[in-house]
Structure formats: structure tokens, C-alpha cells
Simulated assay, not measured.
Amino acid sequence: MKKVIEKTVNLNLVGVDGNAFMVMGIFRRQAKKEGWSSEEIELVMDEAKSGDYVHLLATIENHCEPKDEEE
């Protein structure tokens, strides 16, 4: 799975409710919090929604990179 844009958000999806709308909402909020533009967020969302549920999760996960709290 390729990245739509070369950016990631500080987000760990482990333990997040697996509902597709919940996953997209959490990603969208974190991206906004980190200063992503609406266009950047929509590029990821459009790609995520272009396939099945597994594609959605893989696309979102590919744009997440949780940071260690200790770093």
C-alpha cells in the first residue's frame, strides 16, 4: 500500500473502535490537530474510501506513526 501523501500523524489505532466511521473520524481529528490542510486530509480519506474495509484500514494505518511518549 503506497502513501497518498508523505505525511503521518501521531496516532496508534490499536484499541480504537473498529467502526470505519470511528477510525476515519479519529484520524481526521488528529490530522487537523497536527496542522494538515483540508486537501491533505481529503486525499487520504478519498483513497481510504475507494476500496473495502481492509483497504480503508490499511490506508489510514499507512498514514499513522505513533510516537513514543518518552521521545
Rank of each mutant, 00 (worst) to 15 (best):
D52C: 10
L43C: 06
I41P: 05
A48P: 08
A20G: 08
H63Y: 08
G25T: 07
M22Q: 13
V23C: 05
N19A: 11
S38R: 10
V16M: 13
D17A: 14
K2M: 09
D52M: 04
M45K: 10
I26A: 07
K32C: 02
K33Y: 14
M22K: 15
N62V: 00
I60H: 03
P66F: 07
D52W: 02
V44Q: 03
D68P: 01
V23K: 07
V14A: 13
S50I: 06
K49W: 08
I26Y: 10
M1S: 11
E42R: 13
H55T: 12
S50H: 06
G51W: 06
D52N: 15
M1P: 09
N62C: 08
W36A: 03
S38N: 15
N12P: 00
S38Q: 14
G18L: 12
N12V: 00
G25E: 11
A31N: 05
S50A: 15
G51E: 05
M1Y: 11
V54C: 00
E65D: 12
A31P: 06
I60P: 03
V54D: 14
A31E: 04
G15K: 09
M45E: 11
M22A: 12
N62H: 11
E71V: 12
A20Y: 06
T59I: 09
E69Q: 09
E40H: 04
S50F: 09
S50Q: 05
L56H: 05
Y53T: 09
K67I: 10
E71F: 13
M24F: 02
L13T: 04
S37Y: 01
K33A: 15
L56W: 06
E71R: 08
Y53M: 08
I5D: 03
E40G: 03
V54A: 13
E61F: 08
I26S: 02
K32L: 14
K7C: 01
D17R: 14
G15V: 04
C64N: 02
K49E: 10
H63K: 07
L13G: 02
D17V: 12
T8P: 00
A58T: 14
E47T: 05
N10G: 00
K33F: 14
K3V: 00
V23M: 13
L11Y: 09
N10D: 15
D68C: 01
N19G: 01
E65H: 08
